[in-house]
Design a protein around this nucleic acid. Sequence first.
RNA 1: GGCCCCGUGGUGUAGCGGUCUAACAUGCCACCCUGUCACGGUGGAGAUCGUCGGUUCGAAUCCGAUCGGGGUCGCCA
Length: 603
Amino acid sequence: MLKSHSCGELRKEHTGQVVTLAGWVHRRRDHGGLIFIDLRDREGIVQVVFNPEVSKTAHELANDLRNEYVIKATGEVAQRPPGTENRKLPSGEIEVIASDLEILNTSKTPPFYINEDVEVDENLCLKYRYLHLRRPRMKDNILLRHRVEKFMRDFLDAKGFVEIETPILFKSTPEGARDYLVPSRIHPGKFYALPQSPQQLKQLLMVAGFEKYYQIARCFRDEDSRADRQPEFTQLDLEMSFVDEEDILKLLEELFTSLVETVKPEMRLVKPFPRFSYAESMERYGTDKPDIRFGLEIRDLSAIVASSEFAVFRAAIQGSGKVKGICLPGCAGYSHKQLEELTELARANGAKGLITLALPLGGYTSLEQLTLDKVKSVAAKYLTIEQVKEMVRKFEAKPGDLMLIVAGEPKMVDKVLDELRREMGRRLNLIDLNLLAFVFVVGYPLLEWNDEAGLWEPMHHPFTSPCEEDIPLLDTDPSKVRARHYDIVCNGYELSSGSIRIHTRQLQEKIFHLLGYSSEEIEERFGHLLEALDFGAPPHGGIAPGIDRVVMLLAGGENIREVIAFPKNQGAIDVMSGAPSSVSEAQLDELHLKLKDEGIIQT
RNA sequence: GGCCCCGUGGUGUAGCGGUCUAACAUGCCACCCUGUCACGGUGGAGAUCGUCGGUUCGAAUCCGAUCGGGGUCGCCA
């Protein structure tokens, strides 16, 4: 090793030792007679002092140092002179008095700051990703990711799980997300698909008898990116035999609780993890991935306004619609412009409009004294005071609160209010950023009716087992069948869906048929799986939490690109390498491929 | 594919019809400085304001198109 110690590890206990350090020049402070260098390596930063009285040659050479030069410096660790300690630095009590300096490599001036955490155009960061990763915050994110994955491995190993790799070149199963395809050279016209997840393979490992499997698995889905989604991502994929829902949920709760306590002890958890039924989550939060770090819960006002004169409400309720709302504390004073902004947000999410009711701040001490003329709302003249009071009671609203009401199709109403709720939770600073609010969502329906396609679709995936007692309903009323399916959600992000799987051929075939597959399709796509179920498949189930999102939440980020070493941008491009890129005609030939539009062969 | 936001020295921002021959901070270069730590001081270089077109006597500024980026809807079994 070129170094005896790392920069970040030095403390006053090292005082008196002669150490050799190697790292990057983080910052240079040249006082003419005296030069201070903040030397940075993976472990942190330490101050190195160049004093001509200690070494004239080292001091002279230090004159040439610039940011990001790579250097090796030898010197004695010394306690800093009293009054010059730097409490902002863990190594701030000491410094290294350099007696020798070697420049291992020079550096061009970086295209953006490495020693300051100012936001820079993301494409530039991605182009010079290796420089961006030098930033302490980015470096810490990647190290955090390492600790998370290490913890998961250790935890599951201790629980008797076996880590097993599964193929990246696998078979296309065209339902679900779009596949990434890999053309076969040996088999003209045939393709592998990159796995959207190792779902089938892990089930087959259960049939194989491994009982407890896990893998930190890369998954590939060719769909448009989002802040929390990119084409390739990582899951902690796990599967267990001879378990029920309770076993999986208990394992997850223990895993995440001890993970947070180990790698991020300063963050708080809600324990035990609350459980919501799908119906309850939709009812109270308008979504199946609720952020429960704050209130502003949705309330159903349909019953209250059922007999309303107000055409907007009446029309909604007489159709198959709902009237629901949320209540914003202390927002009654919102200006016309602010209300218009909220209405715009509602419209952007599909609402025709937004009804607002502002409760006066003063003028009534008990609800009895509230009169209609004091309530500020375009709907006031169509409502009775009793209806308004009922709403106030339903929201437990206080004087000065603002009620936001949306009417229409239930799906739209939920979506709009979910959006408004999360936006206002942020704006009103109701969110505790140090809190990780994990929740389990259970009791999902097995199937969802797709009106456009005119067939049943699985809510999760076609391998999810229905609840035993609901199996007869598959023939009579499929919408009523509950799934043995659970989700884990944290701070409004879905970390994973999981389920107890179907483990008999008969039931699996029945589900495939219900989903509209012909016998031939079933055989072609899932024949290998069905055959496996015939050979003594054990009852089994599992889940696969998304590691990128977990690390993002632990890092306090809002974007998974901050916790992936080499991410792709929104257009699925690796800005650093330029992938995807053109290939030569020879390569295409070998793969028996021909581009449809010869023009696009040019770069 | 739809919608919203953003493109101004290396970086981050300001300017939003004329006074812009484009401002500020930082970075960069040179010189000075022995206790700084976002060191300080003096001086200097560095931008045809993403691109194209239009409106106008006059465009960084207004309009249109286009390209690039971010967010989001659709999509994500």
